[in-house]
């Protein structure tokens, strides 16, 4: 019996495993090897240097600063994105407690998600431009001249200006995921709760939240991984990997790119990549453990 099962499963899985091995596992393995060399990336000469690159990383303050920014993102990005997405999702469902025009909002809030990240980045780089940008323009029109600034080069604002773009563009996606999850909750639960005198908040807290916990948890892991990467928006919004904005909002992945493509230190860049890989794996495991709780069947 078992033989038959494997005869069926193996041919189905094999192509996927081969492709995954060729395009994911093999490059990872190569990157791990490259991280042990001082490869400059312009010849096949890859001198082996052992763990030198990792030793350097350990003392590299610029790398530590970059990782520190990833750390801040790790807290802010999932928290704020999930909070906003959850609020919208809850307002647009929960049986008869949903707000009017919910269908319209659902579509509109999803719009940013269908725009490619690069276009989102370029769009916002114009919004943030100091002299002709929309944001400073609105602030000036509102008489808030004092708040205007060069959002993308001011060290105090650049990272958060880019984080705001990330949140703006991803809230819609998570909202839809939460909506899907919430809509699978039978409306009768909410009707019963209303009869018992539940407010919108108590319905949310005691019915919605526990029943979508699994989805929430997956979303947090996704967002945490996004916070550890966060490459595209930093580079695109700030206008390139060697701009002042990119430097002042430099996260580990941008530093990696900078070391490889701008400074021809591919060995060192690969070591950064390997450290990021390890951190991402660790983080996923930790979040899975910490957020494990009873799931409800309904």
């Amino acid at each position: 019996m078992h033989h038959h099962k494997y005869r069926l499963i193996v041919p189905f899985l094999l192509p996927a495993i081969l492709l995954y091995g060729l395009f994911v596992v093999w490059p990872y393995a190569q990157a791990i090897y490259v991280s042990l060399t001082s490869w400059r990336g312009v010849s096949s000469n890859r001198p082996f240097v052992g763990l030198d690159n990792y030793q350097r990383l350990w003392q590299d303050t610029r790398f530590h600063e970059a990782l520190g920014r990833n750390g801040q993102l790790l807290v802010v990005l999932p928290l704020v994105t999930v909070a906003i997405a959850l609020t919208f999702a809850a307002l647009f469902t929960q049986g008869s407690q949903r707000v009017r025009g919910a269908g319209f909002y659902r579509v509109v809030y999803f719009f940013p998600q269908i725009i490619p990240a690069v276009i989102v980045g370029i769009l916002w780089s114009y919004i943030y431009t100091p002299n002709i940008g929309l944001l400073n323009g609105v602030l000036r029109a509102a008489g808030l001249e004092g708040l205007t600034r060069s959002w993308l080069t001011d060290p105090a604002t650049v990272l958060w200006a880019i984080v705001a773009v990330a949140i703006w563009s991803s809230v819609g996606f998570y909202m839809v995921i939460f909506l899907a999850s919430m809509q699978s909750i039978p409306a009768s639960f909410y009707e019963a709760a209303i009869l018992d005198g539940a407010t919108r908040w108590t319905s949310f807290k005691d019915i919605t939240f526990p029943l979508i916990w699994e989805t929430l948890r997956t979303s947090i892991i996704y967002l945490a991984i996004a916070a550890l990467d966060f490459f595209i928006l930093v580079v695109v919004v700030s206008g390139g990997s060697t701009t002042m904005g990119a430097r002042r909002a430099e996260v580990a992945a941008v530093y990696l790119y900078n070391q490889a493509f701008d400074s021809s230190r591919w060995g060192y860049a690969s070591a950064i990549g390997v450290v990021l890989l390890i951190l991402t794996l660790l983080l996923s495991v930790v979040i899975m453990r910490v957020t494990r709780r009873e799931t409800y069947e309904f």
Binding site: R40, G41, V42, S43, S44, N45, S264
Partner: peptide
């Protein structure tokens, strides 16, 4: 370059060009 089949002449300029110092060193 890594594969050993580079062009015969290159105007290596502009943003994102090859790192001349690295090419020399190699």
């Amino acid at each position: 370059f890594v594969a050993g089949t580079p062009p015969d002449v290159i105007d290596n300029s502009g943003a994102g060009n090859l790192d001349n110092a690295a090419l020399v060193a190699e």
